[in-house]
Design a binder for these strands. Structure first.
Lengths: 140, 140
DNA sequence: CCATTTTGGTACGATCCTCTGACTAAATAT
DNA sequence: ATATTTAGTCAGAGGATCGTACCAAAATGG
């Protein structure tokens, strides 16, 4: 089977598990699209344009999703001291809490996968995918 | 980085390339969602319910997308001789042509990736993902 | 320093995708 | 023969995404 489709299956399995864990922990108002944008917010805050670029959606879509995240209390926007036009999207406490749950779910799933493949093979898999990012990820 | 996200990046890269190749070959009316459903149609034809299950969308969504594929001439629906309620979704000639283009694009991308990782490592990657399907793909 | 271009972001409208709920008809099970 | 399951459709709604058009601040180039 083609590697792209195999990656899709694997990715979707992880995403489904993480979303389920979030919902179970009370973060049941988060959507997939919101999560994909939120996952790109760095600790120091990230500009909307950067989020859009990394998530590969338009500025409008990213703005739309950040609006929702803000209304739901996951993130806040602060003025960017370096540029009066821009604002930094930052995690709010509720967002930090959701991130912690998501990270734990990811770790749990990876543990299961490691149990299936073995630790050496999992690391080899990760290394191969990381290496492919040089070809596949323009926003590394 | 977490393996789920790495798979997402890899998958999206493949999908983008395939869609671009299809568009360049004149199949520019195909959408991603249509393609994901169409990719599950087997040579002997596939029932709508089976497509929905495998693509992990509802029957309604699958029906909606197949309607569009049918109107655009990519697929046709035929009565299922084994069940009067059901119909088999089959590729039409235009669909077969698109599949050929998609397959060629996939092969091209995999070739590039093989050039980057080496043939041994690519096969190891594929084998690991295939093995993970036992955990990640309920519709294998 | 001023004009031009680039960059960060918003507003509006349209389209696409997806789901829930309700339904029909055929097949299967009891 | 009746009840249940299965294949599929219809109608309606909400969410996600994009294209076009804008505005304002910053950078660039005389």
């Amino acid at each position: 089977m083609n590697i792209g489709l195999l990656c899709f299956i694997t990715h979707r399995a992880m995403e489904t598990r993480v979303m389920a864990a979030l919902a179970a922990a009370g973060f049941d108002d988060l959507t997939l699209a919101q999560g994909r944008v939120a996952a790109r917010i760095s600790p120091g805050g990230t500009r909307l344009t950067a989020l859009a670029e990394q998530a590969q959606v338009t500025k409008q879509t990213a703005g739309f999703l950040v609006d929702q995240l803000e209304r739901a209390g996951y993130v806040r926007r602060e003025p960017d001291p370096a540029d009066a036009r821009a604002r930094l999207v930052r995690m709010a406490p509720r967002g930090e809490a959701a991130v912690a749950v998501a990270r734990a779910a990811e770790a749990e799933v990876e543990k299961e996968w490691t149990g299936h493949l073995g630790p050496g093979e999992i690391e080899r898999l990760r290394a191969a995918l990381e290496s492919l990012r040089e070809l596949t990820d323009p926003y590394r």
